[in-house]
Write a protein that binds this DNA or RNA. Structure first.
Lengths: 247, 247
DNA sequence: TTGAAAATATGACAAATGTCATATTTTGAA
DNA sequence: TTCAAAATATGACATTTGTCATATTTTCAA
């Protein structure tokens, strides 16, 4: 227990507010949506909340996981470092998503890093709490299994697309994906997520210059418009066509 | 039950031998290695064994899963169809591996197809048996979770490599991967798995001609040698170097 | 505000990879 | 065995994509 207290002290900052899991809006959207009230209470008593500024790292490749993170509000990117020191984004997380669970469940070091791409509030839930929940609640296990299955499906789709689709198609697809993932601002066209050209490039799997050129091309073709990092989705059918997505 | 009997009749062929799960060599290597004897009995009574010739398809993208397949002996490729009708291999399975579980657990249609790449013997285990096992045995759930985690880790590594490594590096890496996955023949150098150049290309994520050229290059550099589809691994340190793999 | 650093943009070019055409070899069925 | 079809191999070339150089713009701290 002493360890945990020390750990919490290290992680906490003055501004961090400890939320109440029972009424947590993020929990209803998460894998914890169906667990018993008793279990919610246990999580509530053992969890630890933390705020992250945009750009702040949650965990790093190679470190050992001590629990999982549940995103309360905000946006997280999961990324890996390639040979030439070039980052590759492999997944995103938003409200209700959990992060850092793959390595913890496998009992391995993190194979990816996680970094906030917006102001983010997360809760940390210690490993022993999760493991005992798996033991007690088979429905929770099924939620976890479905989550992993969904991630695996998306990852295998990415493999297919990286191997076979040209960069232009992947760029259009990535823009549509970001729109689905994080939605639009109240104006109905501006994407809620704001990424640098370099980050977009590492998501698409291309050079930063190529990403910039393609975005400019899409702008001139009136598929999107942008002012700096604020990107507006103008022509969804057009983007679907460029992405070579039909049905 | 009638449905199941009909299904089994459709799947079975005269030559198919019904193995005994209790002493199954493949089970010891599988996610079923730790389950209780009672559960083994239930699986044994409900499973159905089937033989597949090289090239025979086990299931197809878009179909609905009714259970999972456990590989007894042989080799299976998991592949997806791309836009231009080009196949992409996303995973392999061997003795003790289970196949077709991702879609079944997620309650979705298959997102990939599975095809034997060698004479293969598999056992089919109905969905209800697996689901009740998850419910009863949390240790089994953990095995499943670890399996999915491992697949996800490999998939995300593939994403990184497809996005960032040149084809030559990926080819060397794929050859080393196949050697690890399926091992070598008794001579200690010939790879046990036999794939067409086209299949190797769809694993590496490149054009068939490029795959052929790279293999010829590796042969001339004495990294490998081959006679048709029988590939010998000659220089492992050399291949590791070409693959840009260090530590 | 101002200036340096970072991010974005664009051109010119190089390199990697894919495509097409066409041999050559291998395979498998008649 | 024999022949046609499929697989493998190779050259020539086109295309895509990446790299490098260099502007231009934006950002942010002093």
């Amino acid at each position: 227990m002493l360890n945990l207290v020390l750990f919490q002290k290290t992680m906490s900052k003055k501004e961090d507010i400890q939320h109440d899991c029972e009424h947590c809006h993020a929990r209803y959207k998460s894998i914890f949506c169906q667990i018993a009230p008793d279990e919610v209470k246990i999580i509530n008593e053992n969890k630890w909340c933390q705020s992250l500024e945009k750009g702040q790292q949650l965990f790093a490749e190679g470190a050992y996981p001590h629990g999982i993170f549940c995103v309360n509000t905000g946006k997280i990117k999961i990324h890996q470092m390639g040979d030439e020191g070039r980052e590759q984004i492999v997944r995103f997380a938003k409200e209700g998503d959990i992060v850092g669970y793959r390595a913890m469940l496998a009992g391995e070091k993190y194979s990816s890093s996680a970094t906030a791409i917006d102001t983010t509030s997360i809760c940390f839930i210690p490993k022993n709490v999760i493991l005992s929940l798996i033991e007690k609640d088979s429905n929770f296990s099924i939620q976890l299994i479905k989550l992993l299955s969904s991630n695996l499906k998306h990852a295998e789709e990415s493999i297919l697309h990286l191997a076979q689709k040209p960069v232009r198609e992947r760029m259009a697809e990535s823009l549509l994906f970001l729109k689905e993932m994080y939605g639009l601002e109240p104006d109905g066209i501006t994407m809620s997520v704001s990424l640098s050209r370099e980050e977009i490039a590492t998501l698409v799997g291309t050079a930063t210059e190529t990403a910039i050129r393609l975005l400019s091309e899409f702008k001139s073709k009136k598929l999107v418009s942008f002012e700096g990092r604020k990107i507006q989705i103008i022509d969804i059918p057009g983007l679907l066509k460029v992405a070579n997505i039909h049905d």
